[in-house]
């Protein structure tokens, strides 16, 4: 199996009834602008890390919203925080804060689950 992030997720339907929203809710509370993503993909297109490795920041947002947390930590580590995504985002989402919250949240999540 591919070692990278979302490819770890097994091909199956998204089960909203098994949704683990802890991480998502915490991020939404601390960065409400995260709610208004319209999935245009501008962030991924401009992404600096994306020129060097397979990295899709928009899809990470989407996975988080579907409760698919497996592999996220590894994915998010690719981000260089350069901020280009925020400049192209048509909705003005504070993406860097989302990433920092996610990084922190994933550490906490891991600690809680150990």
């Amino acid at each position: 199996m591919n070692a990278f992030g979302f490819k770890l997720i097994e091909p199956r339907s998204i089960d909203f009834d098994q949704f683990d929203g802890r991480l998502l809710n915490e991020i939404l509370e601390k960065e409400p602008s995260f709610k208004i993503c319209l999935s245009c993909g501008g962030c991924t297109a401009t992404c600096n890390a994306g020129t060097l490795i397979d990295f899709n920041i928009r899809k990470m947002n989407l996975l988080l919203r579907r409760g698919e947390i497996t592999g996220l930590a590894r994915e998010i580590d690719k981000c260089m925080l350069c901020g280009k995504c925020m400049l192209v985002c048509p909705r003005g989402i504070n993406i860097r804060n989302v990433i920092m919250l996610l990084k922190k949240g994933l550490v906490q999540y891991r600690n809680e689950n150990i």
Binding site: L52, I53, D77, K78, C79, M80, M100, K103, K104, L106, V107
Partner: peptide, 11 residues
């Protein structure tokens, strides 16, 4: 933020 620094081992 010391707990979650990236390694960028893909560089």
């Amino acid at each position: 933020t010391a707990e979650y620094n990236s390694t960028y081992d893909y560089l």
